[in-house]
Design a protein around this nucleic acid. Structure first.
Lengths: 399, 399
DNA sequence: CTGACTTTATTCGAGGCTTAGATTATGGTC
DNA sequence: GACCATAATCTAAGCCTCGAATAAAGTCAG
């Protein structure tokens, strides 16, 4: 497929406009003058452009700031009420549906418990559809101002309108979640974005959490299993089949433990909460995993030290391959482990990294907590407003 | 550092012009009409642009092709004599300097033997400078038509004008090769590009070899050690510190064999020719390595099967992280191994890859042979002509 | 209270870019 | 030799961003 790289003057405008919006969105309220400095656009261009944006109601005024001896600056910001996005987290135990405004303030939520180990695709789809209707109703947002629905699911998602989901943990072989949602939707014209939950969470950390401002980062998410998000040039890297970033199946021990994917020696076979507990000989069902892991940490089990060591090995591989500016450790298990042992994790990583320069303090903890999957899913909806994946390229890194 | 993402009309033209040049360079001779189709630009734009390019002598006519009942198409191509590039391969045993025209036809060469294990930086720099002078003289190319010098070295290269090189195998700790070359150069104004040899070779495979036409690929180079090149969005991915792609230090056995980098369990500690021979208990100095490895293969040593298995594990990690369109195995050891055992390597990779779809035949052998380091280094010089790293983005994939 | 000064934002003409459509060039075919 | 087909170029038009000039909205000294 030839993606025409042709650029016309209109593309130019689109691109500059998107950049300006991003500067405004991520750089907080700013005056036209500041925007000119941040984007490199001339004041004239910023002026006409913000004029358009104000007329379209994408941007609103945000008070003014007086300066010593000059005309006061009028601050602008992205209009939080310009549009709304629904984020859905399809988790092991529940389906969470949340509605956000453009500033990612939560406006409404709906949760549906899912009986463990029973994830009937059609039931999940019904929960999502019901949840979307519920949050729209509850928030009293006009339906035509909802820009779309983002869904984070476990497993990998094949590109295409059907959004085929393969999730071993759910027993989903090739579930066309996108098609199911469209078929059942009350609002059939709503754009639907389905993506891996680790990626949505990663994007949340990238936009609002510990990854903010970086262009080359890796976000490792340790929960029951292990997932990840790879950020290159300021945007999520997805590879040829949109399945890149499966950090959990990076091999760390050739011929090692069998992973639930079937292969041997995967990171996930050692470092997911499930695997850690298994290695420690602890039996815990998924609802008790967190408490059990916390206990293991408190006890100072030797398995913990081993875990840190292995995590260091895995992170070192990532450092050598990606040479990232930052590595973010998130997910509930990751936060639990890293909360106590960040220094040790950094040391273990450094101990395995000699072939290139490595800053131990580039390994940090996630800031958003484990509930950010839905938030991240909602960002999938927002992303096109700011120029889509063309976001790749020129993020005005204000920080 | 804020890289202004601002785009003006001039950038637009630069970008389209670069795209057109790339289409012409990689898409062979083509008529203006075909270029219009390939680039998406209107015939009018192609016409004016090619007019400029012809006037600048960047492009020349390449015969015409008559069509049935219409004006015959005039073919165009990039002028091979528009400029010349020098590529340098700083290897273990010799420094090779080669001069290429824009079509990458070799016009002259000069080799300098380096006594093994003695890589005095200043001596190497003198060889390079002498070589550059020699090939320019031999080829009788006007000095002002030489666009620059590209140098491929082992180890990693820090960005910056000094081009600090760290190469454990040479005992180079922080050799400012760029500065040394500039200081000694007869032609001080010649742009100098220094990069890791595995990356230059990877770029050669990407442009002219088995990686041609791909946007997401990984090129693994197995020689005495193991290096690699990661291609994302059609260009080499370099990460935050330009050191990404150190495939050789991907860990495959936590706590495993000690690598020459000092860490344990690196791919290179198992799969470089040196490591393979060591594991088989064969003693061979670097000049004999190739013959020794070939013998090992012919004998069907059990170490060989193990090697294939471990390579499969490593490639599987890469597949899970990058989800590439293609994996190219190159380097002399890689070609030796892959020449006989490609099917087994593919099978071993597939056996470790269950978490996402994987096409075994996406693993292929390099096409350029082990001498492509200098060729690739020369492409570093050519790259800016075609829009530099802005090459990332819109490569008109004609294949 | 007034006038000088500062800083911010807008307006306007200029210079570029690509495009659609018309026009010119170049050959085959009947 | 008239007519047709295809390739390349020319021309006018519509956008875009920019620099410079202009307008707007304050502060502050006297």
């Amino acid at each position: 497929m030839v993606t025409s790289g042709r650029r016309t003057v209109r593309d130019l405008r689109r691109g500059n406009r998107a950049m300006l919006l991003r500067a405004l969105y991520f750089g907080g309220p700013a005056s036209r003058n500041e925007l000119s400095a941040a984007t490199g656009l001339s004041p004239a261009t910023v002026s006409t452009m913000t004029g358009d944006l104000l007329a379209e109601n994408v941007v609103v005024e945000a008070g003014q700031v007086d300066s010593d001896g000059g005309r006061p600056r009028m601050l602008l910001k992205v209009n939080p009420a310009f549009g709304y996005a629904v984020g859905v987290d399809v988790g092991e135990t529940q389906v969470r549906v949340e509605l956000f405004d453009l500033e990612m303030k939560e406006r409404a939520r709906a949760h549906y418990a899912v009986r463990s180990a029973k994830h009937d695709p059609e039931l999940v789809a019904r929960h999502i559809v019901a949840g979307v209707d519920a949050v729209i109703a509850e928030s009293e947002v006009p339906a035509d101002q909802v820009l779309g629905v983002g869904v984070g699911v476990p497993g990998i998602v094949e590109p295409g309108p059907d959004a085929l989901v393969r999730a071993k943990t759910f027993g989903w072989e090739a579930v066309p979640l996108g098609a199911l949602l469209r078929a059942g939707a009350t609002l059939p014209e709503l754009p639907i974005h389905v993506d891996n939950g680790a990626k949505t969470m990663g994007q949340a950390e990238l936009w609002f959490g510990s990854g903010k401002g970086t262009r080359d980062a890796i976000i490792v998410l340790m929960g029951s299993g292990v997932g990840g998000t790879i950020v290159t040039d300021g945007a999520i890297y997805r590879g040829a089949g949109r399945a890149a970033g499966e950090v959990g199946h990076l091999k760390i021990v050739a011929g090692g433990r069998i992973c639930r994917c079937g292969a041997r020696g995967c990171l996930e076979a050692y470092l997911g909460a499930e695997a850690i507990l298994d290695r420690a000989g602890v039996v815990a069902d998924s609802a008790e995993e967190e408490a059990a892991l916390a206990r293991l940490l408190a006890e100072g089990s030797p398995v913990v030290g081993e875990t840190v060591e292995l995590l260091g090995v895995g992170l070192s591989s990532l450092v050598h391959l990606f040479n990232p500016e930052r590595i973010v450790i998130g997910g509930w298990a990751g936060l639990l482990l890293g909360g106590r042992l960040l220094a040790e994790i950094r040391a273990a990583t450094a101990a395995n990294t000699h072939a290139l320069p490595f800053q131990p303090d580039s390994v940090v903890l996630g800031r958003l907590g484990p509930d950010a999957v839905a938030l991240g899913a909602a960002t999938l909806v927002i992303e096109p407003v700011f120029g889509g994946a063309a976001l790749r390229g020129s993020v005005p890194t204000t920080a």
